[in-house]
Design a protein around this nucleic acid. Sequence first.
DNA 1: TCGGCAATGCAAGTCGCCTTGCGATATCCC
DNA 2: GGGATATCGCAAGGCGACTTGCATTGCCGA
Lengths: 228, 228
Amino acid sequence: MPQDETPQNETPQLKPAAPLRRRGAAMRRAVLDATVRLLAEGGLEAATVAAIAAAAGVHETSVYRNWGTREDLLREALADYTDQALPLPDTGSLREDLHQLLTALGAFLDTPEGPALLHLSIAPATAETRSGRDAYWADRLARAERLLHRAAARGEIRPDADPRTAVEALMSPLLARHLLLGEPVTPAYVTALVDLAMDGLAPRTAPRTDSRTLPAADARRYRGGVSR
Amino acid sequence: MPQDETPQNETPQLKPAAPLRRRGAAMRRAVLDATVRLLAEGGLEAATVAAIAAAAGVHETSVYRNWGTREDLLREALADYTDQALPLPDTGSLREDLHQLLTALGAFLDTPEGPALLHLSIAPATAETRSGRDAYWADRLARAERLLHRAAARGEIRPDADPRTAVEALMSPLLARHLLLGEPVTPAYVTALVDLAMDGLAPRTAPRTDSRTLPAADARRYRGGVSR
DNA sequence: TCGGCAATGCAAGTCGCCTTGCGATATCCC
DNA sequence: GGGATATCGCAAGGCGACTTGCATTGCCGA
């Protein structure tokens, strides 16, 4: 125990009856807020545990005891922060809805929080953290799926189309573009994606030649292994 | 050529006259090989720089001097290793080609090397490492694009479709599934994806109701800014 | 063949993530 | 108000990534 040494730092006059040692929910909030702030200001690498703890006026140990790992903390902070980041449009037109949704997603990816969230979602996940992560993204996709269901009710999409697949096919490329290619998500790209999803690759008013393309139902046969 | 590796550290008596201070290309090969081996055996976390260096019979410092970063090393090792992992099918049918390509990609994602490559490709990249990473993935996509171009020559796809967008829309979901959702890439999923890309969401032989869906050519117009 | 240069080995050290044991205190509950 | 108990602050330390200065040695060309 520190007998003398008077560990109180340089507070010459003020001895505020200040809250000092925050705990429980109050402490969690302070840490979560500090995390998002540091993240937004300096990106992923600025959000070290030491920096976060200091900014929140909390000791590093408390962070680890409450969240276990830095990644868990960042993940929770971001999930909490971005919970209402992507509102669901409802314009009455699927094409337009999708366009707006993807544009909003693209914009989010351009903020510091976007890539941070993706990086964390993707970091080698342990069994425990994985379930939380999967649930988070599954929820995001489920929300987007509602667009498709509304469109289906309006007869805007073919009845045999799978909404889940469509949602993944639409949102994944935006993430991949940002993460893998480092290319921006332009309005033109969003349009191309939506058009592709809506209209498909195959010629619509088929070229007079009979269907060289396999009938969809038949294409389902699965050719065994791909040679090496 | 590889003289038996002798991983036993306990060689109490032997002081081989050939300490083998490998350098240059020989050293790089040894390190690259050791990296892939450790990666395949113990996953990402087993491939520490210390472990790799030891397995390659090289000093840690050399690794850092040659690659700079652990991630750069892993990235190069994997890129080198997987260079011919995804052969381009050429069956004469786009639907079938895509099916095989995506199936092979899905299979790759189920090996330890697949996720490792993705994780590394996505890790916060510095300006230098980013260009290499982007180029790698751009090359992968360019290869796949060839499928689309062949199909275009055969008249299998509408002339106004963008091959690049299609490739991204097809491959990205597989990556996202693995990384974000933690869900497996099943043959059924591959089929659904390919079907979606080929046929689109919009009803084909339009429901008797007149074309509620915008004509493909006209749909390309871009509705101004998306609100908020 | 031999010297010189560059690449490697080695040691010591920094930094960020994370753990642990212990003392100090806020907060609930009686 | 006065414990009990869960929490928090603190210090020390381990581990892995990464750096740096210096001693060694492989190797290429003169």
